[in-house]
């Protein structure tokens, strides 16, 4: 067995194990961390396929940013685990049907009929100086330009939707304006007033009164 095969089987096993732990773990923070492990393992599998740009961007975007925000939210939620499990038996038949349908749908697309060894020739290994970033850039900005722009618009729609959900009208409450805070001068805040010197009345020494 070659080294690549050993690496593939080890990380594929970790990938499947952590993916099943994502759904079976009780603690939602742990489930999120297992999902992170999942992403890291699949990044390594992509690396084995010489798709290093995709592998690194998977780590950079999903592990480094998206899952951090996920974890951020999950940590602050107060999840009631007992309530989550309460309807388990009642919804089990329905859930099994849905799961079967989803599995059938996915299998019809990515079954071994379409992606088996017969359907695809073994990809040729590329020389060391081959840069798949350049290839990918050329493809994205020429052949796949239209889908690429559509995906960008989709993200824009998501941003607009998120902002409109959280927008609470124009800001009429009192807020700090940092540009004002920075622009403040001493002259705006402090006024020095010239006063004539005042001579205090000479009070009787208190110590003398106490000693008498």
């Amino acid at each position: 067995m070659s080294v690549e095969k050993i690496i593939f089987y080890v990380f594929a096993a970790i990938l499947i194990a952590s993916a099943s732990l994502v759904v079976t773990t009780r603690n939602s923070v742990r489930a999120t961390l297992f999902l992170v492990l999942c992403f890291v393992c699949s990044a390594i599998l992509w690396m084995l396929l010489e798709a290093e740009f995709l592998a690194i961007s998977l780590v950079l975007v999903y592990v480094g940013a998206v899952m951090v925000l996920f974890l951020f939210v999950v940590m602050m939620l107060d999840v009631d685990y007992a309530a989550l499990k309460s309807g388990f038996v009642r919804f089990l038949p329905l859930a099994l049907v849905v799961a079967g349908l989803v599995f059938a749908a996915i299998y019809s697309i990515v079954s071994s009929v379409h992606f088996g060894l017969e359907a695809y020739a073994t990809p040729a290994a590329h020389p060391a100086e081959y840069s798949n970033i350049k290839e990918l850039g050329m493809l994205i900005y020429t052949d796949y330009f239209y889908p690429f722009e559509l995906a960008a618009v989709l993200l824009l729609v998501a941003i607009v939707a998120a902002i409109s959900l959280t927008f609470r009208g124009s800001r009429e409450r009192k807020v700090q304006k940092p540009e004002w805070q920075v622009a403040v001068n001493r002259a705006d805040r402090v006024q020095l007033v010239k006063m004539a010197a005042v001579k205090k009345e000479q009070a009787a020494p208190a110590s003398d009164a106490a000693s008498e």
Binding site: E52, I56, S57, V59, L60, G64, E129
Partner: peptide, 14 residues
Amino acid sequence: VNAGLLYILAMTSL
């Protein structure tokens, strides 16, 4: 490696 810069970004984000 070719994608050294990207790799560093990915690692520091972890």
